[in-house]
């Protein structure tokens, strides 16, 4: 095991240039430590980043809310800036793990760990969040929806790190919102299904809708096909057989120790229906 604690962000990025093989960034450690203890990760190269102030904090600037990658969920839940601009996002995160884990786990870690069950990702997807990836030579922003490309796989280069999460200040404005995390209990649960949704309705017509699901594909995803179908329709114009057909193309629920694919599928359908009729 190799352990590096860089002095500052420049030294971190410098280190990444020389980096050979896979590196794990240690911030809150709530996923990493468990994986090391259970032998899933053996002899890792670890770079500790939780002390780097450049990566931490919540700021509002130029119409955006910028959340540093190592900002803890506790900090997000307590943040006045978030409460003012993104109250739905904040409220939804209350069901994240437990207070103990909220104190330690970080937003960047929840994304980078790449779990299909990551709680924060479906929410960030409907908020059209961007993430900033930094290396010694460049900073680039990409939409979170373009970040993952497979189970625990993403587009990040070996010399890059997630530094920021960027959300438009008015991302929630004038939207009707919906979030349901379904687990085996109300706290300390890994979700079996989660659905996040935002819509705008004019008259009876849905003028805009964004939906994302967690724990139901190899990584959390937006349901673009379903969204397209629902847009510009009134509730009575929506054919749920069609919704289910489209959903079949966009989700791949599985049966595992924790739940069954039939259950995940039906809950997903029910939650979408409830949100549409809301």
């Amino acid at each position: 095991m190799k352990f590096i604690k860089p002095e500052n962000i420049d030294s971190l990025l410098e280190n990444l240039e020389d980096n050979k093989g896979r590196t794990y960034f240690l911030a809150g450690g709530t996923d990493l430590n468990v994986q090391i203890k259970n032998g899933i990760i053996r002899n890792p190269n670890i770079i500790y980043i939780n002390h780097l102030s450049e990566l931490n904090g919540i700021n509002a600037a130029n119409g955006s809310i910028i959340i540093g990658a190592t900002t803890s969920f506790h900090e997000i839940l307590e943040s006045k800036i978030i409460r003012l601009h993104l109250p739905f996002f904040q409220k939804s995160l209350e069901s994240f793990a437990s207070p103990l884990l909220q104190n330690s786990a970080t937003i960047g870690g929840n994304i980078a760990n790449g779990s299909p069950t990551a709680d924060v990702v479906p929410l960030l997807l409907i908020l059209d969040a961007e993430i900033e990836l930094s290396s010694k030579t460049r900073n680039r922003s990409i939409y979170l929806k373009d970040f993952f490309n497979g189970y625990k796989q993403n587009v990040m280069e070996s010399n890059e790190i997630i530094t920021k999460i960027i959300i438009n200040k008015s991302a929630e404005k004038n939207f009707i919102t919906f979030y349901e995390k379904v687990g085996s209990r109300k706290a300390l649960a890994i979700s079996k299904v989660s659905l996040a949704g935002m819509k705008r309705v004019s008259g009876y017509k849905i003028t805009m809708i964004k939906l994302s699901v967690g724990s139901i594909n190899e990584y959390p995803r937006r349901l673009f096909k379903v969204e397209d179908y629902l847009t510009d329709k009134t509730a009575s114009e929506i054919d749920f057989t069609k919704v289910e057909e489209l959903l079949d193309k966009e989700i791949t629920p599985i049966t595992d120790l924790r739940s069954d694919k039939e259950y995940r599928y039906h809950v997903c359908v029910n939650l979408i229906r409830t949100f549409i009729n809301q």
Partner: peptide
């Protein structure tokens, strides 16, 4: 409290074995 699932075996720990929390 669900411990054994046919085809998948026994739960491994408290992540999977759903003891109720104070919230429940």
């Amino acid at each position: 409290e669900f411990f054994y699932k046919p085809g998948y075996g026994r739960m491994h720990g408290f992540t999977d074995y759903a003891l109720p929390t104070t919230m429940d």
